[in-house]
Structure formats: structure tokens, C-alpha cells
Design a binder for these strands. Structure first.
Lengths: 190, 190
DNA sequence: GTCTATACACCGATAGAC
DNA sequence: GTCTATCGGTGTATAGAC
């Protein structure tokens, strides 16, 4: 079912769908909009996603987790000094959200009504990410408790500055927050 | 139109409606649900809010701004040392979101599709709040630039830890973040 | 794999009795 | 001020031709 061309097409298809869910949320995204941005008819969407809107969101969610993993969290495993890995993680997150101009689909769908099982999956994923971040903080010399706190604080700062920057309509605020984080990670291990 | 009893009733009415918008978002909240939680028929809701769902959200939004102002930001104007006012602001925010168990309606509706005018109103409100926070930080001895950064960082931390704590289903994470903020505000001016 | 046409439920909203 | 009944519109989803 997946020819070489269709693999690329599927990526652009998913990307178009993602745009709608990002800006409208799960409930706000309608099949009419989803069909329009993809250039397909509604019925054609059901060929690609027999489960309808719920399946689209599910696929996009897994996709977003994979992308964020690849863009950001994978860098925690590189063969570099711990502090440098943390800095590169921050940069990866920065890139994933397009420097504050785009929201994170996981956060968008995680607050919504996609069902308890999905929320639990997202929570599990976040717990894993926090653990891994804490592990790297430990490598920089922090005690476990402090490392855990730093990991939580880092994620909170990234998502929080993304949120407030978007509420304000000023992506620059997010960029400045990222810059500060980079700086503080630099200083901590200078 | 507003007898003494109806004033109290209106508060509980608004509170019920708020619960639906908080958990379902604007698009996700249906008139059927809104009617059910209030114990009224759909048609009766239109007596209280002739503008329908949009008016309910608008009223609730203004209400939330007023509540957050009263619970938290008003404390920045008290006759106390600046650092103590900041600490009391944090505690007020903590109380407003019920120690991390409840989301902030402004953040929920702000990301949504309530129209450009509302988003601009929310952005303006946040800018004002940031300015006022920065002003108090200046009073603690910080230079304007640093004060502005601290204000942005404080709001980002509060909203970010609220977001991540809720994604994780662990309000305790928010409470710990609040505790840390209090502590750092204590140390900064010990 | 995409389309047109359509089913059918539910949405927001209104009419009008009480 | 609340209700029942109902409207028109749109939402998700499907049938079936091509």
C-alpha cells in the first residue's frame, strides 16, 4: 500500500492535518477543514484513516512524540559532555516548536478530550522524558533530588514560556527564554 | 433583574459553567452539557446569556480575569516589602488554580478560537500583568532589564509547571514548583 | 484512491406556552 | 424565568460509482 511516492505524500498529508489540530484543537478541527487543507474529499480521508478524526489525532500524536524525541530528547544520548547535551536538547526543542511560532501538539491534545487512555500515554511519555533529563542533570554533578527538580523546572520553563509567548503573540519572548536557559546551562558547568 | 438571591445564584451558575469550559475547552463545551451542569434547560440559558455560548465564554473570561486579579495580582499593590508582595502573589496564584488541580480559564480560552479581539484583550491583560510584576521586581533592587526578565520567567514557570503537572496528572509537581518559587523569592532578599 | 451524494445525530439557537 | 418542541445548519461518517 505504500509506494515510494506515497511515503512522501503521507508526510505532507500528516503535516497538513497537524496544522489544523494545532491551531484549532481536537474538538475545533472539523472534517471539512481537514479535507480542505489536504486537498482531498472527506470520504478520501476515511480511506487513509478508517477510524476518522480520532484516528487522525492518534496518529498525529504518535508522530509528534516521535518527532520531539528525534529533534530534542535523542540528543540527551549523544556522546558529549552532559551540559552540552542539555544545551543541545534545548536547541532541539526550540527547533521543534519553530522558535516559538508553533505550539506542541502533545500539549494541545493532552489537555483535551481524547480519552483517558491517551492522557495516560502522554503522562507516561512525559514521566520518561523527565527521568531522562534528570539522569543527564545528575551527570553534570547534581544530586538526584536536585537533578529531578532541575528536569521538572526545565520542562516547565520551556512549555510555560511557549504558552505565555503565544498568548502574548510574541514568539520573541520564547526565544529569549531559550537563550537564558542555554546561558544558565553554560554557566553551571563553565 | 438582580434580586439578592439571584446574585448568589448567578455566582454558582457561572461557576458551574466555568467547570465545563475548563475541562472541555470552548469548542468542546456543548449547550447540552452546559444546561445539564446548571440544572437548566437550554432555552433558559439563553435568558441569562442572550448571546449564547459566545457570551457565556466572554462573561466567564472577564470573570476569570477579575478573580485572578483579586486573588493574586492585587497583592502586588499591598503595603509590604516588595519581595513579600511577590511571595504573596505566588500564593494567590496557587490558590486561584486550586493548588494545581484546576486549570486557568484564561489560558484555556486564550489558545482557542474565540476570535481575534478576545485574544488581543487577553494579550493586553498579560502584558499589563507582566509590567506590574516587573515593577515590583525593580523595587527589590533589580535593574529594569533584569526585572522584566524575572517577571516573564515567573509567569512562565507558574503556567508551565501548571501545564506539565496537569499533563502528568500530578498536581504535587505544581505545588513543589510553587514552593521553590517562594523559596527563591525568600533567598533573594534575605 | 478519489469522488458525489447522502444518512443521521447533534449542534447552537428560537418560538411560544406557562 | 423556565419549560417543551422544534428549526436550520453542520458535524461525523458511509454508500457506491468511477
Amino acid at each position: 500500500m505504500a509506494t515510494i511516492r506515497s511515503v512522501r505524500s503521507r508526510e505532507t498529508l500528516l503535516s497538513s492535518l497537524q496544522g489544523v489540530f494545532l491551531s484549532k484543537g481536537y474538538e475545533g478541527a472539523t472534517l471539512t477543514q481537514l479535507a480542505r487543507v489536504t486537498g482531498l474529499g472527506k470520504a478520501s480521508l476515511y480511506h487513509h484513516f478508517p477510524g476518522g478524526k480520532a484516528e487522525m489525532a492518534q496518529v498525529l500524536l504518535r508522530d509528534a512524540v516521535a518527532q520531539l524525541e528525534q529533534s530534542a530528547f535523542a540528543r540527551l544520548k549523544e556522546n558529549r559532555p552532559a551540559a552540552e547535551r542539555l544545551r543541545r536538547f534545548v536547541d532541539g526543542f526550540d527547533a521543534y516548536v519553530d522558535r516559538g511560532r508553533r505550539h506542541c501538539l502533545i500539549a494541545v491534545l493532552g489537555q483535551g478530550s481524547l480519552g483517558e487512555r491517551h492522557n495516560e500515554m502522554i503522562a507516561e511519555q512525559f514521566r520518561d522524558w523527565q527521568r531522562r533529563l534528570a539522569g543527564v542533570y545528575e551527570e553534570t554533578g547534581l544530586k538526584p533530588k536536585r537533578a529531578e527538580r532541575s528536569a521538572q523546572a526545565l520542562l516547565a520553563t520551556l512549555y510555560g514560556s511557549l504558552l505565555t509567548a503565544r498568548l502574548l503573540g510574541e514568539p520573541e519572548q520564547f526565544q529569549r527564554a531559550v537563550k537564558r536557559q542555554r546561558k544558565s546551562l553554560q554557566d553551571a558547568t563553565a
